[in-house]
């Protein structure tokens, strides 16, 4: 058997893949957080809950409505995005003029209420969600067996990350977003409906989280608390990457996922905390974060 640094190649590759999968979720979630924070100046604590809502929406669409995975992949983000838009319009938008800490506290409460509600109705235990028939099985890559669904997660999340980046950097809507991030009042004075833009942005961020949730449903189990620990890791990812850059959020997400996977191989005891340790080190060496512009 091939060994690398005293570790079987198979195990190394396996954990690298797990790291890449986790990294896909970190990237999707920190991307959404960064987009929302950029424009709304709100740290969306409910991001983990919205991720969970995405997974649950897929599960319920399947079990109640008989809607398959592929439609759920589109429908769940739309449903969660719509829900987020209503929350933004009716409640969150009242907090923009206040200290940003209130936005954090509000979305924290929102997350607790959503997660509590789902736990009340569906219990704390996880529910399986089968991957679609087109994506079952595994392919032999020579050095390892790659489960098809896991390969799909990496490709799909990468595609969505790139699409989001293109949307923000290369389109007219993205130009509005970037400009409104700098000076929302002037953009509105130009005739752009900035309040609507804020609603759409929050819905977009939540939709991205829900998309990640649907992707995650067949990998992890669907449970009400699946997002609550994840969101804290994503916060650390965002602190490491700095929220000033969309690309930074994406790259940091994948990078830290892989580092976490490698830690599982070489020093499993630390795999839970390695991202937090990296965060602490980055804060000591470069407080603004790897890609951060703001002090």
């Amino acid at each position: 058997m091939t060994m690398i640094f005293g570790v079987p190649l198979q195990a190394l590759m396996g954990q690298l893949l797990v790291g890449l999968i986790n990294g896909s979720f970190y990237a999707l979630l920190s991307l959404g957080l960064a987009i929302i924070f950029g424009l709304l100046r709100v740290i969306n604590f409910a991001h983990g809950a919205q991720y969970m809502l995405g997974a649950f929406a897929a599960l319920l669409l399947l079990t109640v409505g008989g809607v398959n995975y592929w439609f759920a992949l589109i429908l769940a983000p739309l449903i969660v995005g719509l829900f987020a838009a209503v929350i933004e319009r009716t409640m969150l938008s009242r907090l923009y003029k206040l200290d940003p800490l209130y936005g954090l506290l509000f979305t924290f409460g929102l997350a607790l209420a959503i997660e509590g509600t789902f736990r009340y109705f569906y219990g704390a235990s996880g529910k399986p969600y089968a991957p679609p028939p087109q994506l079952t099985g595994a392919v032999n890559l020579g050095f390892m067996f790659l489960p098809v669904y896991r390969g799909w997660v990496v490709i799909a999340s990468l595609a969505v990350c790139i699409a989001s980046w293109v949307l923000i950097e290369k389109t007219k809507l993205g130009a509005y977003l970037r400009a409104a991030t700098e000076n929302p009042v002037l953009v509105q004075a130009f005739g752009v409906n900035v309040p609507l833009l804020l609603t759409l942005t929050y819905a977009l961020g939540a939709g991205l989280a829900a998309f990640a949730g649907v992707l995650a449903a067949p990998v992890y189990q669907v449970s009400p608390l699946m997002g609550s620990n994840l969101i804290i890791i994503v916060f650390a990812v965002v602190v490491v990457g700095g929220m000033g850059s969309i690309l930074g959020a994406i790259v940091t997400g994948y990078l830290l996922g892989v580092v976490e996977g490698l830690t599982k191989v070489f020093y499993p005891e630390a795999s839970n905390i390695v991202i937090f340790v990296i965060m602490a080190i980055v804060l000591i060496l470069r407080p603004a974060g790897l890609f951060g512009k703001e002090a």
Binding site: K172, A175, R178, A179, T181, F190
Partner: peptide, 18 residues
Amino acid sequence: GIFASLSVEENLMLPPKV
């Protein structure tokens, strides 16, 4: 009010036609 994160052309094209 020129936007730093937008190119000159993006700045130019930013305000919607009224």
